[in-house]
Design a protein around this nucleic acid. Structure first.
Lengths: 161, 161
DNA sequence: CTATGTATGTAATATCATAACACGTCAAGA
DNA sequence: TCTTGACGTGTTATGATATTACATACATAG
């Protein structure tokens, strides 16, 4: 993730989403993971916007499209995507967002706009490093860490001004 | 938080808890916030161990002690404590833990042991700083950030070995 | 004393998540 | 070819977490 995240900038989102989907297809093909219709559709739904969707939001969409309409249908597909690194869970929101950089093995921080609810990924290596170091002082061994920021995205800062 | 957190070390917990409670009393007295029986009791319950308790766990305890037995009773007291900086919410666990250093204005990181479920606070200034910097590159203004680590505490590492 | 704000109690409901089991598909090996 | 086993999907039921709305009590300032 060499450049600042583009989620907040106006961009060719159709291309952005298509690109992420294509990478996802390539990745799953490579690893043998099965990208089934439900799973692909869930990823597409998540990719429509740079927002986090609750499992039940996704489920509602699926149900209208002829897929199952019970919670496990959504939760299983979401779990698959998260396991494959194609989506992320946002703890703060109990919701899920498509990964914008699938394949680039990463554990990003999330920037959550409290006004427009957009979610962007940010580089978290340095922050994680600090955390690991501090944890080590207490003898704690970090396995996974969650880093999420709540605040205002550039657009909403401008709107407020 | 100059020293590594003591939560994982064996310590005089009665004193630890009493001290935190005393600080809490002093703080609320100073600010005019009302430390009522339910609120005090909830804080005491959280202080019994260095773990995170779900709202319903707290509620069950309250109910057996003659307080109300509906969810808002617990959620309101917990919200008060969090607002006053006397407790923290652990997003990852949907649970709450008493603050060990009330008054020392802080926004710690949390170290959550996946085996014994103890929760410790760790200094997070550096990690937060990294996050703010990275967020700024995307034009994002961080207001609050959540930093939580899941892993193994020293005791459980030893036990595993 | 009484008006006001705050805290508490309670009912009802909303939201988020998982367990358990049935059925279908498909590919590997007998 | 048949069978078996793994996996994915569908469905029922339930569990876990959280909030809204309204009623009641209680402290304190005026």
């Amino acid at each position: 993730m060499p450049d600042p995240d583009l989620a907040f900038a106006t961009h060719d989102h159709a291309h952005c989403a298509q690109d992420a989907l294509a990478r996802a297809e390539a990745l799953t093909a490579a690893t043998g993971a099965r990208m089934t219709p439900v799973r692909r559709r869930v990823l597409e739904i998540l990719l429509e916007e740079h927002k986090a969707l609750g499992a039940y939001d996704v489920l509602a969409r699926l149900a209208t499209e002829g897929f199952g309409n019970q919670p496990p249908v959504a939760y299983r597909a979401l779990e698959f995507l998260v396991d494959q690194g194609l989506a992320h869970r946002i703890q703060r929101l109990n919701a899920f967002t498509a990964c914008v950089h699938p394949g680039e093995d990463h554990a990003p921080a999330f920037l959550i706009c409290r006004t427009c609810h957009m979610v962007a990924e940010a580089e978290a290596t340095a922050a994680r490093q600090s955390l690991d170091t501090e944890a080590a002082r207490a003898g704690f061994k970090v396995e996974r860490s969650t880093i999420e920021a709540l605040g205002l995205c550039p657009n909403c800062q401008d709107a407020a001004a």
